[in-house]
Simulated scan of single mutants.
Amino acid sequence: MKTLVGGLLTAVMLIVVLAAVGWLALQRKDIPYDSLEAKYDSPASQYMDLGGGVRVHYRDEGRREGPTLVLVHGYSASLHAWEPWVRSLSSDYRVISLDLPGHGLTRSDQGYPAGRQGYGAVVDQVTRKLGVERFTLAGNSMGGGVAWEYAVDHPDRVEGLVLVDAAGWPRDGGGSVLIFEVLRHPWGRAVLKNVDTRPLVRQGLQSAYLDDALVTPELVDRYVELARAPGHRDILLGLQTGPRREATPQVLSKIKAPTLVMFGQKDTVIPATDGDRFAAAIPGSTLIVYPDVGHVPMEQIPDRSVQDLKTWLKAKVYAAVP
Rank of each mutant, 00 (worst) to 15 (best):
A280K: 14
G238R: 05
R128I: 05
K254V: 01
S35N: 04
G231A: 06
P170C: 13
R304N: 12
Y112V: 06
V177P: 00
K129T: 10
E37C: 08
F278V: 08
G160Y: 07
D221Q: 13
A280G: 03
V16E: 02
P186I: 06
G264K: 11
G120T: 14
D212Q: 14
L226M: 08
D165Q: 11
Q125S: 15
A19T: 14
G143Q: 07
G284C: 09
Q46M: 10
L252E: 06
H185P: 00
A121F: 02
A114K: 05
G174L: 15
R198C: 01
A121C: 03
P43Q: 10
P186H: 05
D41T: 13
A272S: 14
L69V: 15
P291A: 04
G62P: 05
V296M: 12
L50V: 12
G131Q: 06
R184L: 12
D156R: 13
Q206S: 12
E299R: 15
L98Y: 08
V5G: 07
L9H: 00
D92A: 15
P113Y: 08
L24Q: 12
H103S: 10
D165M: 11
Y40T: 07
G204Y: 03
R157K: 14
E83Y: 07
M13A: 15
V21I: 15
V220F: 01
G22M: 04
I179F: 10
A81S: 15
R55C: 04
R304M: 14
G6K: 12
L183V: 07
L287V: 06
V261S: 09
V56C: 04
R94N: 02
V224M: 10
R202Y: 00
G284S: 11
Y40S: 10
Y75M: 09
M13E: 03
K256T: 14
A20Q: 04
S97Y: 01
H103Y: 06
A315C: 04
T241I: 10
G294R: 02
S91M: 08
D196E: 02
P101F: 13
A38F: 06
P84M: 13
Y40G: 01
L237V: 09
S141K: 05
P186K: 06
L4K: 13
E181N: 15
M298P: 00
F263S: 11
E61F: 01
A44G: 04
S91E: 14
W85T: 11
Y209D: 05
Y318W: 12
E218N: 05
L200R: 03
A25I: 02
P258S: 09
P67Y: 06
G275H: 01
L79V: 05
I301H: 08
P155Y: 08
S141I: 10
V146E: 04
A19E: 12
A166D: 07
K256C: 09
R107H: 08
L313V: 12
G145K: 07
V201K: 04
L161R: 09
L192R: 02
S108T: 11
R245C: 01
A138I: 01
V70W: 00
V224E: 11
K314H: 12
V5K: 03
L71D: 10
L178Y: 01
V269A: 10
V293P: 01
D30G: 02
V123E: 07
A257H: 08
V251I: 15
